[in-house]
Every structure is written in structure tokens, then in C-alpha cells.
């Protein structure tokens, strides 16, 4: 498994960063040492999850910057209060680019891209159906590729161009997929619809692998109303026009 090798490599990097931190602080504080060792387990878990979720290098960089911030804030909080509990509200600055607009945010590193979009940019079109990457209602485009935004960490998408359902139309002019979904009634309750349409937009760009139909290529987006006939017809129509 690729991530395991990556994991070991990143851990070594982090350990190195830790010892540098300890050295720069003169290896003085016993509390800081204790903190770093207590924190080790949580850090390993986080890194592993990030790697399995496909965050890769971005996640490792994120973790490094998170560690530096956490360290600085820990030192600060130890100076200012006697309590040994450490507040978890450590944030890192990131630039979220959604539908052409830039949002400078300070986010906790565990905040998902979906929560960052829904709660920090005011764009609620992307939906949370399961928060586990199982339903596809949260699908957005990241640099043109479709992803489940509930499985992505916002900080790993620093500077990446994100497109949500609100950014698909050109002003009042609907995207051809949006027109086709209306025409073919490719939705009923509408809750999975933003995800379906964004997934279809990604599919138009990437194309269906040989031997695979639209149904297979859209099978990561679940519609409980069962509007699949309409969804598939809408996508086929727009694909046909493109070809």
C-alpha cells in the first residue's frame, strides 16, 4: 500500500520537526516535552486518515504547519494560564477559492471542505447527506475534477479552484446540464441534485472509460427518489451534443 510508505516518511519528517522545535526552545520546558509525546498518538491517527483519504503531500504539509501553530499556541497558553488542558481551537490560515471568489479563512485543520464551503462562504447548495463519502450529495469540482467535499480537508485545498453548483450557471444562463436536468426531470426532491449535476460536469470533462456507461460512471451519486432514468437521459443528451 502506497500510503504506508508515505506515512513512515512523513512521520520521520514530523519527528525531525519536533526535535527542532524542542531544540529552538532550548529543550527547557518539561511540559512541552510531555505535550509533544501525548500528542503523538492523535497526530499519527490524523496523518493516517489524511493519507488514506488521499490528501497526500498536501496533508503532510498541512500537518506540519498545524504542528507549528499548535506548538506556538501551546507555548503561549502555558505562559498565560496554569491549566494543563490545551484548547483544541488551533487554526491555520487558508485561502479558499470558490466559484472565482477568494475567501481568506482561519480554519481548524480537521474542517472538511464541505463544512468550510457551507458554513464559511454562505454557499449552501452543496449538500451533506451522509458526511462519509457514501451518497455523493456534496460533490464539487476541484480544479475541474469531481470530489466528495465531505471527505476532503479544506486546508488541503488551499488555493485550489473549487466550483460548486452555485458557480455552474453563467449568470442567468443555466449550464446545459442544468437545462437538461429540468427538461428530463432528472430530480424530484432536489437534495442530491447539486451533487448529481456537479458529478455530471466532472464526468463530461473526464469522459467514461471504455466499456463503462454513464450509469456506472454516475454510480457514486445516489438518488433515493430514483430519478436515474432522467439523470442518465440528461447527461447523455449533453454528452451527445458535445461529441
Amino acid at each position: 500500500m502506497g500510503w504506508e510508505t508515505e506515512y513512515e516518511g512523513f512521520l520521520a519528517m514530523l519527528d525531525e520537526a519536533d526535535s527542532e522545535l524542542l531544540a529552538t526552545e532550548g529543550a527547557g520546558s518539561e511540559e512541552i516535552k510531555a505535550f509533544l509525546s501525548e500528542d503523538g498518538e492523535a497526530r499519527r491517527r490524523f496523518l493516517k486518515q489524511a493519507l488514506i483519504a488521499g490528501g497526500g503531500v498536501a496533508a503532510a504539509n498541512l500537518l506540519l504547519s498545524y504542528r507549528l501553530n499548535l506548538f506556538a499556541q501551546t507555548v503561549e497558553s502555558m505562559a498565560s494560564r496554569s491549566s494543563s488542558t490545551v484548547e483544541s481551537a488551533v487554526t491555520i490560515p487558508i485561502t479558499l477559492r470558490v466559484n472565482g471568489k477568494t475567501h481568506a479563512l482561519n480554519l481548524e485543520p480537521q474542517v472538511t471542505l464541505l463544512d468550510a464551503i457551507r458554513e464559511r462562504t454562505g454557499l449552501t447548495g452543496s449538500k451533506k447527506g451522509c458526511d462519509r463519502g457514501q451518497c455523493g450529495a456534496c460533490t464539487v469540482l476541484a480544479d475541474g475534477h469531481r470530489i466528495n467535499s465531505c471527505l476532503a480537508l479544506a486546508a488541503a485545498y488551499d488555493g485550489v479552484e473549487i466550483t460548486t453548483i452555485e458557480g455552474l450557471a453563467n449568470g442567468d444562463q443555466l449550464h446545459p446540464l442544468q437545462e437538461a436536468f429540468i427538461k428530463h426531470d432528472g430530480f424530484q426532491c432536489g437534495y442530491c441534485t447539486p451533487g448529481q449535476i456537479m458529478s455530471a460536469a466532472g464526468l463530461l470533462k473526464e469522459g467514461c472509460p471504455t466499456g463503462m456507461g454513464v450509469r456506472e460512471c454516475m454510480s457514486g451519486n445516489i438518488c433515493r427518489c430514483g430519478a436515474y432514468n432522467g439523470i442518465v437521459a440528461a447527461i447523455e443528451e449533453v454528452r451527445g451534443r458535445q461529441a
Binding site: 452543496s126 451533506k128 443555466l174 429540468i182 426531470d185 430530480f187 432536489g190 437534495y191
Partner: peptide, 21 residues
């Protein structure tokens, strides 16, 4: 006749507001 669904445009543009929004 297949008239357009009343809430169709809101649902395909992400403007439809559900309770969690």
C-alpha cells in the same frame, strides 16, 4: 402536458433552501 416543475430552477442551481441551509 409536461409543464416545467415549479421549483425546478431553484433545485438545479442550488438556490433551494433546506432546513440545514
Amino acid at each position: 402536458r409536461p409543464v416545467p416543475r415549479k421549483e425546478g430552477r431553484d433545485k438545479v442551481t442550488g438556490q433551494a433552501r433546506y432546513v440545514d441551509d
